[in-house]
Every structure is written in C-alpha cells, then in structure tokens.
C-alpha cells in the first residue's frame, strides 16, 4: 500500500487515500489527511464533525448515515460540504480516520 507523508507524519493509506490502519489516527494525522482535501486548518466546526464520526465509528464499526451526522452535529449537508469539499463520506470520514465506506453508498 502507498505511504502518505506530510511533515513529520508518515502513514499507510489505501488506494483512495483512506488510512490503512485507523488505529494510528491522532489529531496531527487528521491535519495531515485534511491537507489532501485542500483543508489547511481544522476549525472547531471541523472537529465537531470529526469527533462525532469517530465516536460513532468506535461504537458501531462503520460510518454513520449522512442524515444522522447532519442531525447530530446540527450542520446542513451544504455546511458539511463547505467544511469538507469532497463531502461527508469521501472527505470527512477520511480526515476522521475511518475506513472507506463500502457497499452501494
């Protein structure tokens, strides 16, 4: 699998740029992954989304429904896209260190 390097960070990512070993995630890694999405700074709004995603993922092992994410964080889908330009699945989940969503989603 390809390695992704950013400043001092060096992690293994899959062919879509998602973390190969989500357990290696930390806040610096989040910043590193965000840079691949054209995000230079993680604001508290970003963190709200990221933290929710991580909590849900820890509990259920998959990413939450988008609708649920919006409802629980209080953001509209559009706001999520503003925060993470490639969207909740391809953008936010990646930065939050989740595995890539699978199935017909």
């Amino acid at each position: 699998m390809p390695m992704f390097e950013w400043n001092e960070i060096k992690i293994e990512v899959d062919e879509d740029g998602f973390m190969a070993n989500p357990e290696e995630w930390n806040e610096r890694v989040a910043l590193a992954l965000a840079s691949t999405e054209g995000i230079t700074e993680l604001t508290p709004d970003h963190w709200k989304v990221i933290n929710y995603l991580r909590d849900y993922y820890k509990q259920y092992g998959i990413a939450p429904m988008i609708r649920k994410l919006c409802k629980e964080t209080g953001f509209t889908l559009k706001q999520i896209y503003d925060l993470f330009p490639s969207g909740p699945a391809k953008g936010a989940c990646k930065v939050a260190g989740l595995a890539k969503p699978t199935g017909c989603v």
Binding site: Y60, G61, I62, K71, T102, G103
Partner: peptide
C-alpha cells in the same frame, strides 16, 4: 468488502443487524 463482508457481517455496507435497526428507526 462486497460479497465476503455481506456473507460474514450481513451487509456489504458493513451494517450489522443492530446498526441497520438503529438507522431505520432514526
């Protein structure tokens, strides 16, 4: 992530019965 996950976990999305029920009630 497709058929193997489907057969083992229950769904190619990775949803277990518990998750899918939770999602549907949401």
């Amino acid at each position: 992530k497709g058929t193997v996950q489907h057969l083992l976990v229950g769904s190619s999305t990775g949803m277990t019965p518990e998750v899918v029920k939770d999602n549907v009630s949401f």
